[in-house]
Amino acid sequence: MDRKADTAGGIAREMQGQEYPPTRLAEIAIEAAVLNDAVRAAARKRLAFDDEPASFAAELARLKP
């Protein structure tokens, strides 16, 4: 099992109380890494301290023609 799959296995067991077969853990590890890496990269480029989730609805309302 590679390092990411091993980490995923640890999260499943120790933090989520779940068990997965090693092959499935390897798939999940890849999928989660792709998503986590993309969001982290996007956040690094854009987010500031004062950004909050609720600003999205306010932004939609503000941009209404």
């Binding site: 969001v39 956040a43 854009r46 950004d51 909050e52 989730p53 999205f56």
Partner: peptide, 17 residues
């Protein structure tokens, strides 16, 4: 189950951007 809460919250914060 394998995505940290910080990443989920950042995804929400990114929407306005």
């Amino acid at each position: 189950f394998f995505i940290p809460a910080t990443q989920y919250i950042d995804a929400l914060r990114l929407r306005a951007h």
